[in-house]
Amino acid sequence: MADIKVNIAGLQMQNPVMTASGTFGYGIEFADLVDLSKIGGIIMKGTTLQPREGNDYPRMAETASGMLNCVGLQNKGVDYFCSHIYPQVKDIKTNMIVNVSGNSPETYAECAARINELDAIPAIELNISCPNVKQGGMAFGVTCEGASQVVRAVREVYKKTLIVKLSPNVTSIADIARAVEDSGADAVSLINTLMGMSIDIERRKSRLSIGTGGLSGPAVKPVAVRCVWQVAKAVGIPVIGLGGIMTAEDAIEFIMAGASAIEIGTANFIDPAISVKVADGINQWLDRHGCSSLADIRGVI
């Protein structure tokens, strides 16, 4: 058995596989279907300071090897998270990570400060890359200044592992990653969804209520691998790779491109137990190839 434990800036994981925000609920929705304690980490639904109703239905459209969504960060706000959801998830035996979003550096920081108080949450993932909300989200993630502002504000109040999730909808993702590293991020995760669109030609309307949405699933994988490769070369902090991972082989591509860990999103909809299967598969692949740990293959490209 190869050693597939990883340490992301103090965040200890038994394996490099996490579930991606917005695709795995709070973990509890999947408890019947997969052994949550065997997942490296669970990144919960996007959480904001104030409750958000999200966008109108329809919020998704299936596309070639993937899907578009424009959920728009529907959530009941950080207070509700702390009082109602945290008690339900705090004893799950894996890293329970909150994905934090906002519409100004202050709201991001206030939300993060609230999460900082929760003992059983070892890390947050800062979402500066959501393409589905008008204000905030991706607006911060597409410029180095915007990204730095948010990360600096959060770093001041957040004392545990700070992961920053990057948008691929930019000219140079490596530049953004460097800016985020300089502002105090402990790790970066990428990619969030690629902005896309799909039109129902019979109805002459977009398939999504707000017109555009974020593309995820296998369709985005080559773009994601390229982004991870570029960012891993540009920064010294750990890189978490995601985008279209469906199998252990997909995960290994990301690790070879330089990822220390990976996240699985859309694939959870097709196979709710995929995260554990990928973790086992990575281990088997390493064994088959005579590798004793992930370090043997990380960033070899």
Binding site: G22, K45, Y57, R59, M60, A61, N69, Q74, F269, P272
Partner: peptide, 17 residues
């Protein structure tokens, strides 16, 4: 019969007002 992805209440794609 709203369009669905996860079927488990996790993705919030299938909402009705």
């Amino acid at each position: 019969e709203n369009m669905m992805a996860c079927g488990l209440g996790a993705c919030l794609c299938c909402v009705e007002k």
